[in-house]
């Protein structure tokens, strides 16, 4: 933390959310520092994806507030405004969520074609630049179904970054990848964060990679959030934390 960040930060206050009969968030409050990588940990079903969807205004909490830079409140934003707001958010879904029917190039170019009046050659240049930055080559005409898991994450990241978002949400970017590919995706995300200085929120249950990349960590458990720098959480003696780290099968060394 060498300089004070002027980047967008998020504060979540007293979120409550029920899914059917199940309470997902009891009374959840936490904050995400601007311009840094924050990792949201939690067992499956703890509401990690729900949290991201709430920040993206795709799901509304039953009560509570989400403040953007202490200025804009997201939960009571009307859909029209939310639609506009989402342009400043990039989201990398679990599994990529690329459109199966379109070649990779068109997938990444889609937001540009929809929201800007750029000519095809300008679009092609921008897409190539993004491909370059995430290390994708020679995949323009391939369909998403023809890509490997790591390539799909790269393409998804490229699509999330193409509109130059201020916040990047990544839902389980490491799920279902082998350790070396996890390293690769990890370095790709860190690189993007360092280069673009965007606020990144990543959900994961991979503890080693969290320790390596996170500046801030949030653990969702029993409907509340425990947050702090990763090492601090990891070394904490709070029983909820020790149980999570123990259950995940990563011994304390």
């Amino acid at each position: 933390m060498d300089e004070p960040k002027s980047r967008i930060h998020l504060e979540l206050h007293n979120l409550r959310f029920k899914w059917g009969a199940r309470t997902i968030f009891e009374d959840l409050s936490c904050a995400f520092p601007g311009g840094e990588i924050s990792v949201v940990l939690g067992a499956s079903g703890a509401g990690k994806s729900t949290l991201l969807r709430m920040i993206a205004c795709l799901t509304k909490p039953d009560s509570g507030e989400i403040w953007l830079d202490g200025e804009t409140e997201l939960t009571c934003m009307p859909e029209r405004q939310a639609k506009h707001f989402r342009r400043s958010i990039g989201m990398m879904f679990q599994g990529g969520a690329l459109l199966d029917a379109l070649p990779v190039f068109d997938n990444v170019a889609l937001p540009l074609r929809e929201h800007t009046n750029q000519s095809e050659s300008q679009i092609a240049r921008e897409v190539q630049a993004v491909f370059e930055s995430v290390g994708l080559h020679e995949v323009d005409r391939l369909l998403p179904g023809e890509l490997s898991g790591g390539m799909i994450r790269r393409a998804a990241l490229a699509r999330a970054l193409i509109l130059k978002p201020e916040i990047l949400l990544c839902d389980e970017p490491f799920a279902g990848l082998d350790p070396s590919t996890i390293r690769l995706v990890e370095s790709m995300l860190v690189e993007a964060n360092r280069r673009l200085r965007i606020t990144m929120i990543i959900t994961s249950h991979n503890i080693p990679s969290t320790l390596r990349m996170a500046a801030w960590t949030i653990l969702l458990t029993e409907g509340v959030a425990l947050s702090g720098p990763p090492e601090e959480l990891y070394k904490s003696s709070d029983s909820r934390l020790t149980r999570f780290f123990a259950e995940d099968g990563v011994g304390r060394t």
């Binding site: 639609k83 342009r87 989201m91 599994g95 969520a97 937001p111």
Partner: peptide, 21 residues
């Protein structure tokens, strides 16, 4: 089948995130 599998693989949410209805 096509639309529901787009729902299942979050492709429609992906579109919403790009502000595309």
């Amino acid at each position: 089948a096509e639309i529901s599998s787009m729902v299942a693989t979050q492709q429609l949410d992906g579109l919403r995130m790009m502000s595309i209805d």
